[in-house]
Design a binder for these strands. Structure first.
Lengths: 200, 200
DNA sequence: CAGTTTTTTCAATCGCTATTGAAGTGATTG
DNA sequence: CAATCACTTCAATAGCGATTGAAAAAACTG
């Protein structure tokens, strides 16, 4: 875990060494990016470890094994294993067949648009659809009492019905937004995809 | 906290009593709604107590005071106080001027669209804007090394640059979506599509 | 197939955030 | 203006989800 001795006796690994300068710059940039990713993913209710592991893979030129990931993220071996499994379940990283290696190697899925679309489709959409269903169920329950013979019960039921109706309307709008995003991600967004990294 | 004695000696408060039936139905409906709201708000990284308190107010016919809220949510007085303050800061509930009442009364803001829009504008937009800034900052750092005299350092810097570029593009697209949502008020879904690519 | 290395699993632990409760501050009233 | 009632604050605590670490399982290797 030490910088190898520089062959050319002249250049020492100081701030003036171009290699060292470059390495530090890259390190700063990567840190900035993975912090940002961690924050974004954390906001999206993913575990911090998922964000960190994905960032490490996404910013690596070659596939990494569990050990390298543990080292770079500071996570335990067990945590890395679980996190890798979870990331694979989400399809955001993939195992790279490494014929003559003993350890398993992984790389990040780079089609980020597809990746975000997937999360939207499998999580947000489900969530919002469930909300719509529940609100509609609540309205059905209230409907049964809306024709009550007792005046005040009826009024109360109707009051609640209008409130829940507003929520349902909003939830349906939200569902529409997510559906639109998912579809755009799959079709219209091809334009963005073209501009994104390498896809052949 | 007890059902008052029924004046008409005939009807006892059983499941056959229309009033009781109606009350139970409303209770079920409200529970369904507040559970759903709690889940949704929890997902949006709001504290559970905020969801519960807002739900109680939103589903009440008249403004409530802190005591009534504490009772119905099961929260402590201190917690209710803090939660009310926070909800007011978000503009999702408001204090109702109650001239001759000793206690302060609150009601829920009912323009839910405005309410969601506000959260999008003040939280999501800020988050995504910050992400864009950070990615662009990372790219600037990498640019300084992209012209490095050491070939491999240059290649590495360029590799990282393209990766970060993709993230930045996605973040900008996300920013566009949120901006659009804030402007269009959630319902004009067609507009979202226009916000996405902005690239041929 | 026995030995060795890598990965997975899961109970225990850790750390963090939400909540409490009691003390402190402020408001209202007779 | 003193007494009471309402509200706020914040240090301590509880509860929960993420992480660890050690042990079991699986995958290689010679």
């Amino acid at each position: 875990m030490h910088a190898p001795t520089i062959p050319t006796g002249a250049a020492a690994p100081t701030a003036d060494d171009p290699r060292e300068r470059a390495r530090l710059a890259r390190e700063r940039a990567c840190l900035l990016v993975s912090d940002t990713l961690a924050e974004l993913m954390g906001f999206w209710n993913f575990k911090p470890s998922m964000g960190r592991v994905w960032a490490v893979l996404y910013l690596s030129r070659e596939p990494l094994d569990a050990d390298a990931i543990a080292e770079r993220t500071g996570l335990s071996a067990g945590s890395v294993s679980m996190t890798l499994a979870e990331l694979q379940r989400w399809g955001v990283i993939r195992r790279v067949p490494a014929p003559r290696a003993r350890r398993r190697h992984y790389e990040a899925e780079t089609d980020i648009v597809e990746l975000v679309t997937r999360v939207l489709r499998e999580r947000e959409l489900r969530l919002v659809e469930q909300a719509v269903d529940r609100f509609e169920e609540a309205m059905r329950i209230l409907d049964e009492e809306a024709g009550s013979s007792v005046p005040d019960e009826m009024i109360h039921a109707r009051f609640l019905h209008t409130r829940v109706e507003s929520l349902a309307r909003l939830a349906r709008a939200g569902r529409g937004v997510v559906q639109q995003l998912v579809r755009a991600g799959l079709f219209d967004l091809g334009a963005i995809r073209d501009a994104l990294p390498r896809r052949r």
